[in-house]
Design a protein around this nucleic acid. Sequence first.
RNA 1: GCGCCCGUAGCUCAGCUGGAUAGAGCGCUUGCCUCCGGAGCAAGAGGCCGCAGGUUCGAAUCCUGCCGGGCGUACCA
Length: 658
Amino acid sequence: MLLAMEKRLREALSEHIARQHGLEVDVPIELPRHASHGDLATPVCFTLAKRLRRPPRQIAADLAAKIPPIEGIESLEAAGAGYVNARLDRSAYAAQVMESVEAAPAAGGKVIVEHTNINPNKAAHIGHLRNAVLGDTLVRLLRHLGRPVEVQNYIDNTGVQVADVVAAFHFLERKGPADVRAMAADPSVRFDHLCWDLYARISERFAAKDPEALAWRAETLHALESGAGELAVLGGIVANAIVRCHLATMRRIGVAYDVLPRESEILKLRFWAAAFELLKARGVIRFESSGRNVGCWVMPASRFLAAARTAGGSVAPAKEEVDPDKVIVRSNGTVTYVGKDIAYQLWKLGLLEGKDFEYRPLGGPGDGGTWVTAADGGDPGAPSFGNGARVYNVIDVRQSYLQDVVREAVAALGYRSQAEASVHFAYEMVALSPRCCAELGIDLSEEDRAKPYVEVSGRKGLGVKADDLLDLLVTSALDEVRSRHPESNDGERRRIAGQIAVGALRYFMLRFTRNTVIAFDFQEALSFEGETGPYLQYAAVRCRNILRKHRAAGGEPAEPSPAELRHHLRDDRLWQLVLAMSMSRWTASRAMDAGEPAQVARSAFQAAQAFNNFYHHTHILNESDAGRKRVLLAIVQLALRELVELMGLMGMPVPARM
RNA sequence: GCGCCCGUAGCUCAGCUGGAUAGAGCGCUUGCCUCCGGAGCAAGAGGCCGCAGGUUCGAAUCCUGCCGGGCGUACCA
């Protein structure tokens, strides 16, 4: 509704300016910070002032006086040094907002969002949670705005990281497929947590350049890539079991996927071979017959380094030993990670002709309708995936360089518009605060101690596991619920505690903007007071309590008459509340334009604050004026709808009570 | 060296793409339950928006240069 009014005002102003002054200008509309400045405002007269050579205040006054009436807008007035402030027709606006939810605008082409992408060799940690929450919120935002979305979670089941854990099982632990399978199936063993420790153990050997361990790794990696032998079998067991663990963890926080494209199928179906031919044929990569990268296929730096491009071509290496060209195929003929990623990106964009996966249902407990790639023998009834009009890769900012290479490779192949439609949805890492390290009992190196925060490291086993954090949140929420609801049964208390834990976690991951490093701290993450998820949930629960009590007392549905709305919305406080509780679509749209899910979090918090303030100042159920009571109850319903909508965008559960 | 990001209240962060008097949470001080649950509300103290120039009607926001910090820059993923 707000979005529609904003649009209407913008169009009316720009039309009038075009007619009156013959100027085509962008009319920025903003929400004034102070209620006294109206409901919507524009500073457009400041830009007009220059071109018309007249003082902005005069133009504003002129505009406000001469513009024909706009439906839904009660008045326009010049204010300040040259603003035009608009006041909405309160009762008309409120009546519309209260009666209907705006339908989502028309959809565009399919959007693919790839997120989570955790190496299937150990438990998920807090950094992965940020990725999944950000990705999932992006998905919810897009769907809310009417876009068809496909969610992909790429599984690198043949990479070094899996190989390392497989090597640890086989060579270090002397476990065979049967043993590992049994461990993975044992409900008393947290298999992903076990692998976390095992991975850290064998990584120590690699870090020490232990030649024996390095030989194990090479042998295992080779076995995984060829897909033959006991090590390969072990690899399949480990990766599949860990993927199940990750999906279970993500299910706890309400994150699901449409399809899991796997590296093993990409290898078997030879996606890379097709991409390689394309890259060679179109001269995107070249074979090096001399120099540092002799025997490799490389992508010249001028292709992807912004500096090199703007400088007009060749890159002058600062030092001889730095070669900015990117190796795509190694001198031993194997393809690098970027190469594989280029092939995968091409497939996602529908540009890898003649290559496609087959799929089968993931199956198993709680598969949630997820499909997984199959090299052959796929389900003939499987949907088709890939071929997106737009692709978001949710990957942390440290991968920017590689993502640039992938994108520029797509562009260099001649697919400019598809490259434009490939978005690296980057975010900063989750690191550990010094206090967090101390609480985990980690003794830091001299070097790390000097830093403001320490990076999570799977190799060092340094980090906070996602499940552990969730368990802590649940325990903490459970204590709170127990003390508030001594009468309710254990099952219900657990359910509520779970909802609070998820709400707290998701809000925490979203309240920081994408390029803020989160220095993780238990005290902050476990807080349920102030700007937190439970604060929002509690505001919604309050709405529900009021409405429930009203119904229990035999109250009528809250449908204020137009006259009642007109009368009672003269109260600025009530009007501001109506306005604040009708912004979700505007917020979603702004957040999407800015590519910043944190704006949804912010906005939801502000809505909850506005409601809580209202709640404390206004008694609703014992209001004696029947008309005013209907208006107040309608506002409560509006607030509930708004809060549920915004929390839904963030994937936060809304408890019935708490 | 080069590239990207960050520097705003004691701490953690917002700041709607250049607009009106720079905001929130935590912490601190002080109030608020005869009333819809206090996971709350209200008030207060706390700011050379890293520094210096520049652009303009107007700069926390844009440009340049410094000073701090982080991350990249692998024939690892």
